[in-house]
Design a protein around this nucleic acid. Structure first.
Lengths: 256, 256
DNA sequence: AAAATAGTGTCTCTAAGACATTATGTG
DNA sequence: CACATAATGTCTTAGAGACACTATTTT
């Protein structure tokens, strides 16, 4: 690309250069499964991560984060999105960059600098893929389980860092929406938050989240065509008010 | 490093590999200069960024962020710290990674993936360096000025992203401490916040920051050996109470 | 009626926010 | 005494936090 003329004495070949710049992706989803209770009840939810079993050296037979080498003609971000689509069959989901891993020796193939992304994929979207190729070498694991496994490379650390990041983001942004349908009940939202951040606990959550002044329109009631409030009884006998995110993202500050 | 034996058919030389993985560093500082008022007064503060003038192709003669290629034997983080120390003469300051830049063609020297760090350096620490080598090719620029300049590579965008990040962090963490002495007055803290985030405005700032319950020990009064409160009259006739950060970092949440 | 979730009533306490007022010490 | 910053007084409003209580619908 536009090589200048006075390229006096620069030659990249005179330096040792990296052997690759892959993107690795921590793909999170939340699975839901019905509790077998007498009545309708809230489902059991669990935070899962997608792993693939390596077929070749190095770390053959071990589980690893999906990922792949980026090409000269794309940004690493594009590489990550491509990889995500290959593994899950979905595009246009939340994907964000969070760290780089470059400890010497982290990859026996050479000097390989890994760029770690995290993606949040709604279970609904993953289901399609599952039907298509139910390969035994691509599986969802509960995050807790994955963290106790002997993963390839430094992927355990990457997963740990990703978990920390998603927990932080879950409480400070509205990414919880990625795990929810467009319209959801307060209980669903609360469950999702608790699934990702087990320590999160707010008594009177419904009170806080719906108080007008402070939350100032983070979520809003869903109304029908004639303005009446809409509710759902997916999870309970008594129908619950449906809400949706408004698109408003509060700015947080420790000084106000 | 520990090459396994069954390295069946992997050869990194069969792929196109990157030509370098540098770290670029956005070094922020806040300069203070006395206003010429009749009485003692708060100084004028300005957010500055350190730039260096390029001596070679490419972008010869243009200003750029300090940075350098990372080596195979170090992490990129170590590379960034090394670079920071070379340019400023200081170690052990706040430095954090924030993004990667990999748009094809961003560097005419080839496929070069830049890792962007931001560092916060106290003006006091930079002064030492200034005396040592006052090279005209290393200078502080007000951030606003730097953003209007034609910087080398995609450094304008990197600077823009770094500014956004530091503004966010300034309000959600206690990094303001990096720009303050150990012991500071409420006005100093407020000034630093406003210097980095001009939109930040809190009437009754002193009330909020010192109210016990909500801030719950973010800062604390400085006391002398016999327990008496210590104050400073650096900036005013009436001495102001000195405070220090406690080390406590509040966890923020939009849901509570 | 019991189960399971949804939502309200009510109370106390304390912070938020606004704004005027007072305090301090020196050129 | 005027200047420039520091800090308090006072008032209103409203949320936070806790917990008991009521509501809804199906098996």
């Amino acid at each position: 690309m536009n090589q200048p003329t006075n390229q006096t004495n620069y030659d990249s070949r005179s330096y040792r250069t990296p052997d690759g710049a892959p993107a690795d992706i921590v793909i999170f989803t939340i699975t839901t499964s019905d509790k077998n209770t007498v009545k309708k009840s809230l489902p059991h939810r669990e935070l899962q991560v997608l792993l693939i079993e390596r077929k070749q050296w190095p770390f053959q037979g071990q589980w690893a984060l999906p990922g792949g080498f980026s090409k000269e003609t794309e940004t690493i971000h594009e590489s990550a999105r491509r990889e995500l689509e290959e593994e899950t069959g979905v595009a246009d989901v939340h994907i964000e960059y969070f760290n780089v891993y470059s400890t010497p020796g982290r990859d026996p193939r050479g000097w390989i600098i890994s760029h770690a992304y995290l993606a949040l994929v709604n279970e609904k979207l993953l289901d399609k893929r599952k039907a298509a190729d139910d390969a035994a070498d691509v599986r969802l694991f509960p995050v807790k389980t994955a963290l106790s496994m002997d993963l390839a490379f430094d992927h355990r650390m990457i997963l740990q860092d990703a978990l920390y990041r998603i927990q932080q983001k879950m409480l400070t942004t509205t990414i919880a929406r990625e795990f929810l349908p467009e319209e959801f009940t307060i209980s669903e939202l609360y469950q999702v938050l608790q699934t990702v951040v087990p320590e999160f606990e707010e008594k009177n959550f419904i009170r806080k989240i719906t108080s007008t002044q402070s939350r100032e329109g983070l979520i809003e009631e869903v109304r029908g065509s004639s303005g009446e409030l809409l509710a759902s009884n997916r999870y309970s006998q008594r129908a619950a008010q449906l809400y949706r995110f408004t698109g408003y993202e509060p700015r947080l500050s420790i000084y106000s």
